[in-house]
Write a protein that binds this DNA or RNA. Sequence first.
DNA 1: CTGAAAGCGCTTACAG
DNA 2: CTGAAAGCGCTTACAG
Lengths: 338, 338
Amino acid sequence: MATIRDVAKLAGVSVATVSRVINQSGYVNKQTEDKILESMHQLQYTPNTLARGLANKKTDSIALIIPNITNPFFPELVQAVEDAASRYGYTLLLGNSYNSEENALQYVQIFKNRFVDGVLIFASHQFDSKDVSEIDKIEIPTVVIDKALDNNQIFSAKNRNFTGATMAVEHLQSIGCKHIAHIRGPEKLYPARERFRGYHDTLQKTGEFRSSYVEQGDFSMESGLAATMRLLDKHPEIDGIFAANDLMAAGSLKALQRKGKKVPDEVALIGYDGIHLLEMFEPEISTIAIPIYDIGNAAVSVLIDQINGKESRFGIHSNIMDEFDVQLIQRASTIKTK
Amino acid sequence: MATIRDVAKLAGVSVATVSRVINQSGYVNKQTEDKILESMHQLQYTPNTLARGLANKKTDSIALIIPNITNPFFPELVQAVEDAASRYGYTLLLGNSYNSEENALQYVQIFKNRFVDGVLIFASHQFDSKDVSEIDKIEIPTVVIDKALDNNQIFSAKNRNFTGATMAVEHLQSIGCKHIAHIRGPEKLYPARERFRGYHDTLQKTGEFRSSYVEQGDFSMESGLAATMRLLDKHPEIDGIFAANDLMAAGSLKALQRKGKKVPDEVALIGYDGIHLLEMFEPEISTIAIPIYDIGNAAVSVLIDQINGKESRFGIHSNIMDEFDVQLIQRASTIKTK
DNA sequence: CTGAAAGCGCTTACAG
DNA sequence: CTGAAAGCGCTTACAG
């Protein structure tokens, strides 16, 4: 592997000059530059980013820590973040925390220690303000994309949970559903609470809210299936289900089909998140789509501002991100055929 | 951020000694060690891996390059590789090549240049021997996990495609299917060819092979759906479908349901790969499971041997990996109810 | 058992 | 416009 010294020797200049052409910094004679470029090419030289990082304190790489790569939401987020990062000239490194805040914190340390200029964390449930201060201590530019916590201190992808839930319920009403059930997420999660509130308030207005139409899930497919089974047993009259996320909606569909309910004519179904998975089913399932792409992009952009010192150098950026509209995506599961 | 120098000063020793306790190398007096440990703790010192890598030429990290994070097969592979890597004390970094061999090669270069000790590449379709020699030139320990290419030079996860396909067809026969169709993958892909061959040879034996029972797909869900539509139009008598991968099986189920075919009683269905996605459907879809976990583990272990110089220092390890048995996973899509 | 010193491959004031 | 030299934070022979 050729080093900057080899290039300098071949070109008959000093390493400083070579460094200048690599970084396009300072002045360098055109002929000298050509000679250096030629030598670099000849030696197939590529700078060692490790050494560069040491000298520079900068590696042009950022890390994204996700809670669970096998949850289909995250690959889609990864894609968005990766696109944005590469547009800014950053390489994206990934870490998978398996839903453990301890692992996530460890990854922040690892990445910080190793090479990255900043880190993006998608908060898993357990993130709380203690963790936030832990991260603060690590002193690396960090942006937490947060679905899980109601904390204004954090750059928060609130994605208008309340509004979206309202849209979902009103959509079910608009296609004629009279008995709308809800499979909610865990009490401790902010989006779950907000989505429930959207459901509750909308039905309350018309006096149709019934607490036994609400079943508890944990955002997993299995819980959506089980919740739907319970709902159907208790309330065979149910003709619409709003699941608080897409994975539970998938489970719900499975339960409905297993029970022989026709979707959407007997029971209409809608999820929340907008992952592509829902297009795989027959019928395809409607959803309230979070603008994952925009969120990923905004998170990267905020992080990079922080890295470049446009914001406080270290710690967690505190910016509310409630600016992205969710969108109703109507598919066959809410298009009545009769 | 504290450096080794700060620790040395606080403990009243030289940096060399501190380095020794960090690396547990050479002898150091117990008292001295305690004093140093104490100082490290007090300063919250963690070694800078960048500097360490520079001095060491080693960072205890490896990279995995996957073709497409949004294909559910890969998150499962990532999980397996990550587990194995962490068991060996390595951190895993991920890169996503979007099915482009150019991107993959670039990632190898980036990772090499930046920090990793070795790289694992899951070959996307386009990998050929030219790419292999490109990688060879980069001179970094590399293991290619290869589904796509019939090349003995490469550590190849052949996963017994032929055997698995035979198992799938025989399974369909054993539950009474008489008209078994196949949705095959692209001609240029080795596993697609092998799976087709397994299908072909098995039916040929009993004289049941009919070429019009074979439809072409490209391993995507959409293609599985379209292929099934064509099959059903041409041959309403079909009562069993073997899809060459799970994604196409998912698409096939969607088509069958759309056409009102009862699965499995009218048409039984089986996929190939063993990703968890297939459990989400109603009915759950049977499959031939590749031992993703074992493959990930073996790939990591081979790579680490290579890093440690137990194998040729650089380039691509040439080891055939055809040692892992595939496994039939029978689910509702092949359990006749009457 | 411990320290001084060179070196890993780069960058960046500072002189010239 | 260019080079010598110090420095980034570590490791590792080499002496002692």
